[in-house]
Design a binder for these strands. Structure first.
Lengths: 211, 211
DNA sequence: GCAATTTTGTTGCATTTGCAACATACAAAC
DNA sequence: GTTTGTATGTTGCAAATGCAACAAAATTGC
């Protein structure tokens, strides 16, 4: 299933190339498990993941790791979204990736004269709105008061998105624990409880809500 | 400290009026504790709170109520930021409010020809980014693994914003507990520990970091 | 195919947190 | 000034969570 990215809405391949030329966009290839560091340090750079998957991760000085976001094909990331001097953020490729970098100011400048640039800016706004929605969801999950509630809230959200009580987890449990900011073993224990109490069924990563 | 709204950056009163005329903006007055319902139902409407304070509230299908955001003078709100079909959102005035409504599509259309509209769109992007940053901060706090760390992270953030190791809390401890999604008494206990271990000083709501 | 690495699954134990129930301080309302 | 209500501060106890350590299963790399 090809990912249709909102950032390219109403763009065909040709106009995309024209636009990228106008905006002096740079496309860079990354291997799996690499640091995507082009944008770091430079302000107002937008990265578009053309192919592949990546993650935004925060490393604590203690060595603790928190997954801040999944970045899939067609998703964008930007230091514009983060208070840069507060925490050590990095974007890491999961698979091989192709990433295009664009300077935001460039888009604004060119939007005055180029209809393509304006269309792209419009798409950008919609994409940020979508990210905002995702952040809101995350906050909802994190503000529930127990691991059980976090798990159930997460599962319900996935069910809603899949329009079905059955869905595949796209996180490993190790990662899910990081995402929900809880201890992995504690998460496993609670997961077991949920299964035993017939709240859910879990046939290797395919979850079914039983209520 | 006056609120400087990014949404009006580079706009004087005159150009703002011109722009609002071009965009067919509508300004509506609300009394305190009223539902600000103009935008509901219509997609892609942006509300700008010119004067007064309001709140964004989510009503659960269970009847549960959650305060999602404080909206102060100069802040904007929009149904664009929310997955509309999942939850029932509403904005309610706290004090008397003046709210200007603009249709986002209108901004895009007019941006092609009007420099003011493009400037406004640019401001809009920066405002959303700022909201995104606030959400990220909240997530940072929520993903730390203990009450102690949540408190310290929160205090450090405030210290940073105030550019000083001493600052006034603008939350009551009761509210702070809700904000950090922890039990209030547990928060008080940890606060006491932090004071006893000389991490912080707390002279009625004036906190000083001692490290 | 085999070795190396990562993820899953489990458990005992210590610590942290939440809950409930107070007393006290403070502020607002009458 | 008294009442009423809300915020602060405290504590014992039960429950939830994190930590550490391990075995088994699955996946990846060569």
């Amino acid at each position: 299933m090809p990912v249709i990215s909102d950032i390219y809405k109403n763009f065909d391949e040709k106009s995309r190339r024209i636009l990228y030329n106008v905006l002096s966009a740079k496309t860079i290839e990354y291997r799996a498990n690499q640091m995507i560091s082009y944008s770091m340090g430079k302000r107002n750079v937008i990265g578009i993941v053309e192919t592949g998957r990546a993650r935004m991760i925060r490393y604590e000085y203690t060595g603790e790791r928190t997954i801040l976001d999944e970045i899939n094909e067609g998703d964008i990331f930007s230091d514009m979204f983060v208070e840069s001097d507060f925490s050590e953020l990095s974007v890491e490729s999961i698979t091989d990736c192709t990433v295009t970098f664009i300077n935001y100011e460039e888009i604004i400048e060119k939007s005055e004269s180029s209809r393509l640039a304006l269309q792209f800016l419009n798409n950008f706004v919609h994409v940020i709105n979508h990210i905002l929605t995702k952040r809101n969801e995350r906050i909802e999950l994190l503000t529930t008061r127990s691991i059980r509630n976090k798990l159930l809230a997460y599962f319900e959200l996935q069910a809603k998105k899949n329009n079905s009580k059955t869905f595949n987890l796209n996180y490993s449990y190790t990662d899910l624990a990081d995402y929900l900011a809880v201890d992995r073993s504690a998460l496993m224990r609670e997961l077991k409880n949920l299964k035993e109490e017939k709240f859910i069924k879990d046939v290797n990563k395919k979850i079914t809500l039983l209520y």
